[in-house]
């Protein structure tokens, strides 16, 4: 009966699309692909969120940001639900999200290049380079090299452009 008083699910999605990722504020939580579902269960707004990395310290902040953003829109009865499966993948980062990452100086993930545990080194050697043609977000050159598979946050790797010499982050595929 009270359903009509609820903002629509579409509206809630829209509000969430305005919540920035705390570590990479140029993209939103929806562009990052970590909001998996938004639904009303009676009077409770249930938002299903999937973590990027198990140990990502931003997870707690993200939950607080969601609650705060919805509270500002007048939604007090919000429940956050963690969903592990299907596990988050960088494939879920939207096209707009990728463009924003690039503009911000972070090379977006190249789908299909996630670590396989053992073969990467061999593939690197066979292909004669270690970067799957990751383009420098500054000058677009693909003459880039990996400095480290781990970067400033769990989701990034460190790269360097050998043309413009700029070091940059690569949002690694997972």
């Amino acid at each position: 009966m009270t359903m009509a008083l609820h903002p629509s699910v579409e509206e809630v999605w829209h509000w969430l699309s305005e919540v920035p990722d705390p570590e990479i504020p140029v993209i939103s939580l929806t562009e990052l692909g970590i909001i998996r579902d938004v639904e009303w269960r009676d009077d409770v707004m249930v938002v299903t969120v999937t973590p990027t990395y198990s140990g990502c310290p931003a997870t707690t902040v993200i939950n607080l940001d969601i609650e705060r953003a919805l509270a500002e829109k007048g939604l007090a009865n919000v429940r956050l639900q963690r969903q592990l499966s299907p596990a988050w993948t960088t494939d879920w980062i939207s096209a707009e999200g990728r463009d924003k990452l690039r503009a911000y100086g972070i090379a977006p993930p190249i789908d299909g290049t996630a670590a396989d545990g053992v073969l990467m080194k061999r593939i690197d050697r066979l292909s004669g380079r270690s970067n799957f043609m990751i383009a420098c977000p500054r000058c677009q050159s693909t003459n880039t090299e990996k400095i480290s598979q781990f970067g400033s946050t769990p989701c990034k790797a460190s790269y360097r452009c050998t043309d413009c010499l700029e070091p940059f982050d690569y949002f690694k595929c997972i």
Binding site: S85, A87, A114, V118, K121, F150, K172, I174
Partner: peptide
């Protein structure tokens, strides 16, 4: 046990990176 399978699905991706690196 689904709850175990779910955690394994998530953590396997991270551990694949660990193995790539330590092996290298």
């Amino acid at each position: 046990e689904k709850r175990i399978a779910d955690i394994a699905e998530k953590t396997f991706k991270e551990v694949s990176y660990h193995l790539n690196r330590s092996r290298d």
